[in-house]
């Protein structure tokens, strides 16, 4: 079923974020999308902030192989083992959880378990989660390798796609940001520039 699409498995977890490995190479969810993972009686929500593709063995870097090939596809066809030597991973910052059927926009009591499955959230879930913009505050205040401006903009663009009235959603989110960033107009402006329709 497309709605609850499984995208990976948790391989590293902390209270604030988790890293998941994709089952297929290059199949990581888009930047800023809402994903979830289940634990006993609890669902953790995260927002994808980073995706990487590296080789399995840390010391062994891929080498250029396409010199004699005409297309990129042909590189993979010539060396089918490549798909097994590379892996795609993505990191998600934890922005909320659901416990006893109640949605909370703050950190869960426990981090995700390793080997928990990670799913892409359905339209309904995204709508439900984005009823409150409290997660924006978490995104603004977490130190991540990617700039919070970019992440927030990407996240809002992703979420707005499930709404019929995208603009209304983005305006509401923009207003929330304007309050959170009341003293940093330049940052606000940067985000707004990235989400305007």
């Amino acid at each position: 079923m497309a709605e609850v699409q499984r995208v990976g498995e948790v391989i590293e977890a902390s209270t604030t974020d988790f890293v998941a490995q994709c089952y297929e190479l290059y199949q990581s969810p888009p930047l800023g999308s809402l994903v979830k993972t289940r634990d006993s009686g609890m669902e953790l929500y995260g927002i994808v902030y980073n995706a990487t593709t590296t080789s399995f063995e840390p010391g062994r870097r891929p080498i250029a192989r396409g010199k004699d090939e005409t297309t990129e596809e042909a590189v993979y066809q010539a060396s089918p083992q490549l798909l097994k030597l590379l892996k795609s991973e993505f990191g998600a910052v934890v922005v909320g959880h659901r416990q006893d059927d109640k949605l909370h926009h703050y950190l869960p009591p426990k981090p995700a378990r390793i080997h928990s499955f990670v799913y892409l959230c359905s339209t309904e879930e995204i709508k439900e989660f984005s009823q409150s913009f409290d997660f924006l505050n978490i995104l603004l205040n977490t130190h991540l390798p990617v700039s919070p401006d970019e992440l927030i903009a990407a996240c809002l663009r992703q979420m707005s796609q499930v709404y019929e009235d995208r603009r209304a959603f983005l305006v509401a989110a923009g207003k929330e940001l304007a309050i959170l960033l009341s003293g940093q107009f330049n940052q606000l402006k940067a985000i707004l520039e990235r989400i305007k329709t």
């Binding site: 603009r167 983005l170 305006v171 923009g174 207003k175 940001l177 304007a178 309050i179 009341s182 003293g183 940093q184 107009f185 330049n186 606000l188 402006k189 707004l192 305007k196 329709t197």
Partner: peptide
């Protein structure tokens, strides 16, 4: 205005999205 910078470097309110977001907040 919430931030005095806005009066010094006014945002581009010809963009309706920007204007709508800022109205009532900043």
């Amino acid at each position: 205005v919430i931030d005095q910078k806005l009066t010094l470097t006014p945002p581009d309110v010809s963009d309706p999205f920007m204007a709508e977001v800022l109205a009532g907040t900043s």
